[in-house]
Design a protein around this nucleic acid. Structure first.
Lengths: 339, 339
DNA sequence: CCACTTTCTGACACCGGTGTCATAATGTCG
DNA sequence: CGACATTATGACACCGGTGTCAGAAAGTGG
């Protein structure tokens, strides 16, 4: 049974002594085909190592059993380093896709550039997952265009009022609350915040708000001088903290909007001779793998990436099936370690 | 210009007042079509937001402009945690694919299960990249089958004699040498090795060999008692080191077969009151992102993931084009930090 | 035994492009 | 101006499946 090219359903039909139509039906286990015929066809197909041509099948059925993942990187991040939190997400999304019988196309996009989302237009994917921190979605017009084209997509990240996309996100506000409660319990009420207290990054801002409001409810107002901006990199956290210290700003606790920032902050503190957690307690956000490696191990607000991946995929699939879907908010979880 | 479904080349043809054939040619910038016609077609296509149907196009041309990445996880690893080294590789492979104009399908495979590699058979991908540590490829028969089916694939990892696949890998032996040389320069010749000194993992074994041989060349033989087995996780490294300490094994340097192992080892040492690097110097392997976060920052042998990703992709593409390709060995690089 | 349903199969159009071939339109040259 | 090359285009088969429809074969019942 040697062939030049790969076997087609006609080859199977020939060897099984049935028509090609019957082969197609038999392989998809259609109830229309006789049990014995079905067995025979499967047998021949296995022997010829036949696999359905996805291109032909997708073309005919007008769907691809494939999802596309667009990963937007922070444009200021080092080219080779990808935010480990998103890599965790990627892992869980991949698994969730596999479980649903979908393939996953992965593509990195630079937020600065005009990103392409033509995976659905070109019938390569049935839907798109958008993943990224920050303002990558501020291209309102782009989202609008996706909606108008009736492209199926879900976004990871904060739900922004007035933005009409379907999102799955961690309850960033609640996570900020968790961090604040933890520090209040530890009697550390003189807090610094490193992240982004402006509207630039919706996620970071929500974390900040939850944190701030929880302190406010205790009658404690965060001091503006103790807030420093940073993007989600270690270096950025390091420098932001460094400048607080240089300005003689004093605090006994620090909430970082992401673990990478927290790790950078701890480095800055330690270099300045400030002990963690004795002098300053630190709480991060994300629970990236490295959070447990660093010493002291980082106390942080965990985002459940496994669940997040599953929700992104299942929401997207619902959307593709034409069902009504609501944006989803996932509960965060405080992981208390040594900082 | 409203449509029910997505626009096809026939729609473009209709609006542009030409035949569908001409549209197809014009969009692919065939020299056969008149400049003015070409412009007109492009214009209409842009207005209708037309994108070529990849399924139809792939079906006809019998190729997919897509590569598949199979990522084999260490079966003992926690489900949610993926070896960060491979995530770095994934990032660089994605980028390399994008640069070459290819899409990338990503799929996680459990090495224990019977893995599927039918992406090429089903015409979803033109070739496959296999990525994983350890013995995931010991399924000789599986590889043999891929070869017989004339599936195009490249593997990441050590070149194993007698295994007929095309590989791209880091010079693990040379990396072991680098680590040994570094420690010898530091006058730390009483060394432990944590990893796998058996043939189980070809990569780890090669690292061990390079390390061992370099010491041998100095007339120093590694003490068997100072060798402990571990797989590439932090916990495994932690426990392996713990048991060395428990057995009263003494050493003033430690070479770990991977950074995760090294990070676990450092934790075990610190818990035992052994100072790093004063009492024991530690060298890891991989240079994962976390290596620079931990304190003290880890001295390690770097694998150039950016280059590795590029080589995997370019070698695979050469193979697909039917060119002769040699397995590639990439030079490692010692990163001296604080351990 | 004939009318009628049920079960199974094959023929055929179709999905949306690509490549080949024929041919019309235009240009070139002796 | 007729023979021929060049350029641009359209008609059409084809890639490898899926879905529809018609009809053969077998079963059922009055």
């Amino acid at each position: 049974m040697k062939h030049k090219g790969k076997a087609t359903s006609f080859d199977i039909a020939h060897y099984a002594g049935v028509s090609q139509s019957t082969v197609s039906r038999a392989l998809r286990n259609s109830p229309l085909v006789n049990e014995e015929t079905r067995r025979k066809v499967h047998e021949v197909a296995a022997k010829l190592n036949y696999k359905v041509d996805k291109n032909a099948s997708n073309l005919r059925t007008q769907q691809s059993s494939t999802l596309a993942l667009l990963l937007f990187e922070d444009p200021t991040t080092d080219e080779s380093q990808i935010n480990p939190f998103f890599l965790s997400m990627l892992g869980s999304i991949t698994r969730a896709c596999a479980k649903e019988g979908y393939d996953l196309l992965v593509s990195f996009q630079s937020s600065s550039q005009d990103w392409r989302a033509d995976y659905e237009d070109s019938h390569r994917a049935d839907g798109i997952i958008l993943l990224g921190y920050g303002d990558y979605l501020d291209y309102q017009s782009r989202l609008q265009q996706l909606l108008e084209q009736n492209t199926k997509f879900v976004c990871w990240g904060a739900k922004v009022d007035g933005r009409p996309d379907l999102t799955v996100s961690c309850d960033n506000y609640g996570g900020g609350q968790l961090a604040a409660q933890h520090l209040i319990e530890q009697k550390r009420t003189d807090c610094a915040f490193i992240g982004d207290a402006s509207h630039h990054s919706p996620e970071f801002f929500a974390r900040y708000q939850g944190f701030r409001d929880t302190f406010l409810a205790q009658g404690i107002q965060l001091n503006e001088r103790k807030i420093a901006n940073a993007i989600s990199t270690q270096d950025s956290g390091y420098h932001a903290t460094k400048s607080l210290i240089a300005n003689n700003v004093h605090f006994n606790a620090l909430f970082a909007a992401s673990d990478l920032i927290a790790i950078g902050a701890i480095r800055a503190l330690q270099e300045a001779g400030i002990m963690v957690p004795n002098d300053v307690r630190v709480v991060g956000f994300d629970n990236i793998p490295a959070a447990s490696y660093v010493s002291p191990a980082l106390t942080t607000v965990q985002q459940n990436t496994t669940l997040a991946g599953q929700m992104l995929v299942s929401n997207l699939l619902s959307l593709i099936r034409g069902e009504e879907v609501e944006s989803t908010l996932l509960p965060p979880n405080l992981i208390v370690r040594n900082t």
